[in-house]
Amino acid sequence: MAYSIKIFIYFILVLYVSASICYLAGSKNTFANRMALWLAVGGFLSNLVLLVVFTYTGKRLPLATGNEFLLSFICITALVYLIFEMITKTNNAGGVVMLIEVLLLLVFIILMPDQMEKASPLLPALKSHWLTIHVLTAVLSYSGFTLAAGLAFGQLRTTNSNGEAFIYRIVTVSFALLSLSIVLGAIWAEQAWGSYWSWDPKEIWALITWIVYAVYLHLRKQREWRGKPAIIMVLVGFSIVLFTFLGVNYIMPGLHSYAGLNELETILII
């Protein structure tokens, strides 16, 4: 089981890598673009199958641990991107978004090799419906920010006001979801730890992410901030999203870092 899951994850990686290459290579090539789309769809469907397997074996939605969050994040980002491509019929963000997917999957393979096959039972603190919707909204908002960053990266080369308007709309929706996620997380923290806000590193960096995008939404209304400055802000925001998700988990241990603790140590944070 464990071995076949590892092979399957490498298969998903190959699909995303190929999709990224085709998107980046085929700016004017219709065949390469079609291939890229099908490879991205294949990557998404395989990713979804893996999550379904995790759900079936763990008897719960795979949203509780770091590896589950990462896999769900990659899957939903692919879905959000594909919906965007289908609706707008543009794929200028495809290369960058798929490249981000590849990098995230590599993080999963390199940093969480022993968590690949496990759907471990939940710690008591994680057994809450608030957790499910808190994480789900966080995944959705992060996926939106990833798509916005992919589009923003494409916008660095060309200045297209229509493209920038898309980025603005995507960031608005993602910002709303991030706000929802923070509030839901606070409700869960209140129930689990007796404190809705503990200045935990994850909370601080989620707040910083929220502030950066709030500043973007305010500044974008000013004419002089439209165009490149706004696009750079979206990219800065996304780098903070990545740090909030990955950097904080590995550099700053806190209430959100369950990895690496033994059973007795986890008692301290029940």
Partner: peptide, 24 residues
């Protein structure tokens, strides 16, 4: 506030069918 950008004048325009090309 999410609903606000949905009003028509703020809606980014999708490419027209005949103009829809990949790799913009």
């Amino acid at each position: 506030s999410m609903l606000y950008p949905l009003q028509k004048k703020n809606k980014p325009q999708f490419a027209k069918k005949e103009d829809r090309i990949y790799g913009l």
